[in-house]
Computed example of a mutant assay.
Amino acid sequence: MTREFETASLDWLEAELQDTLDEDIEIEFSEPMLSQEIRKIYREQHPEMLDRQVYFRNLLRLQAELIKVQDWVQHSGAKVCILFEGRDAAGKGGVIKRITQRLDPRVARVVALPAPNRREQSQWFFQRYVPHLPAGGEIVLFDRSWYNRAGVERVMGFASDDQVEQFFQDVPEFERMLVRSGIILLKYWFSITDEEQQLRFMMRIHDPMKQWKLSPMDLESRIRWEHYTKAKEEMFKRTNIPEAPWYIVEGNDKKRERLNCIEHLLTKIPYEEVPGEKVVLPDRKYNPDYERQVLPDELYVPKIY
């Protein structure tokens, strides 16, 4: 009986793993509405893309390590703050999705702030970001951050030269304060080539399921590619401090980009495996007098599939 139970358990685990892989493949299948012409062009531009099996095998391994990071953060009360910056369509969202995919949203949360309202515009610049910083036992991932001022706000003219200069003077000390307070602060810049961004924008234009990702600001960024390059270079020069250095992730191959970023992230957090108590499923208690009520049919979702 024990051997049969073990065999059944292995079959169940194998089925669960397959289901997990199916979920990953579903997430990865990000071009459902593209024409064959666009698909062909993309493949021709990326002849050396990482093998799918290699990618998924390593992604699952890294996500297992991220769960250990989560357990350590909860156990130790650590505070982790990760900034994700880069050009539009550079793959920031895809990396964030893979990092958080198997984590507890009560521990790891994503912050993606909209444009500041009038009240926020009148505040100290960093004020709107402070409430979102991690408390003990939390991991916070900023999908764009206070570096908007050094990038889009500067290039698009939403911030004056004086405001940008004040930012550059303030941000190193602001980040040193965060680090001194015990926050593990990591800053990632996702880098893609001019040609790659153009190709990804074209894919979004031709994919109805991704057109929502294209904003007028994104289209304007294509026109101002060189302005963004100069802004990025000065940002690195003035904000790459020893306490919080920048790390550049090459992103032309999305799969390599994701794996490389997560691998690096794991080396920058001093986590260790936290021994946990063995979980034992308790016996269900049965009440012989209990009768389950029959619910009306209209409460149930129709079984279309």
Rank of each mutant, 00 (worst) to 15 (best):
residue 101 Q to I: 09
residue 212 W to C: 10
residue 101 Q to D: 13
residue 291 E to P: 06
residue 128 R to D: 10
residue 101 Q to N: 13
residue 116 P to H: 00
residue 36 Q to W: 04
residue 302 P to K: 13
residue 44 E to I: 11
residue 72 W to K: 08
residue 215 S to P: 10
residue 164 V to A: 07
residue 245 P to Q: 06
residue 297 D to G: 11
residue 138 E to Q: 15
residue 285 K to F: 04
residue 255 K to T: 04
residue 84 F to Q: 04
residue 72 W to Y: 08
residue 217 M to F: 13
residue 2 T to L: 14
residue 144 R to K: 02
residue 286 Y to C: 08
residue 75 H to K: 07
residue 296 P to H: 11
residue 247 Y to C: 10
residue 71 D to K: 09
residue 282 P to T: 10
residue 100 T to H: 08
residue 152 V to L: 01
residue 245 P to E: 00
residue 144 R to G: 01
residue 276 G to Y: 03
residue 103 L to I: 01
residue 112 A to Q: 05
residue 242 P to W: 03
residue 29 F to V: 13
residue 237 K to T: 15
residue 174 F to V: 11
residue 105 P to K: 02
residue 162 D to L: 15
residue 287 N to M: 08
residue 37 E to V: 11
residue 44 E to F: 14
residue 99 I to Q: 07
residue 108 A to D: 00
residue 203 M to Q: 06
residue 258 R to K: 11
residue 142 F to L: 14
residue 11 D to F: 10
residue 99 I to H: 09
residue 203 M to T: 07
residue 11 D to N: 06
residue 32 P to W: 01
residue 273 E to V: 15
residue 16 E to H: 08
residue 87 R to S: 02
residue 191 S to D: 12
residue 41 I to N: 05
residue 194 D to S: 12
residue 140 V to L: 00
residue 110 V to Y: 04
residue 49 M to S: 15
residue 52 R to K: 13
residue 235 M to N: 02
residue 51 D to W: 12
residue 19 D to F: 06
residue 218 D to V: 11
residue 232 K to Q: 09
residue 34 L to H: 02
residue 4 E to T: 10
residue 271 Y to V: 00
residue 115 A to D: 05
residue 63 Q to F: 11
residue 189 W to F: 12
residue 55 Y to P: 07
residue 123 Q to F: 08
residue 106 R to H: 05
residue 32 P to Q: 05
residue 61 R to M: 09
residue 269 I to C: 01
residue 70 Q to R: 02
residue 105 P to T: 04
residue 121 Q to C: 09
residue 130 V to Q: 02
residue 58 N to T: 06
residue 78 A to L: 05
residue 256 R to E: 15
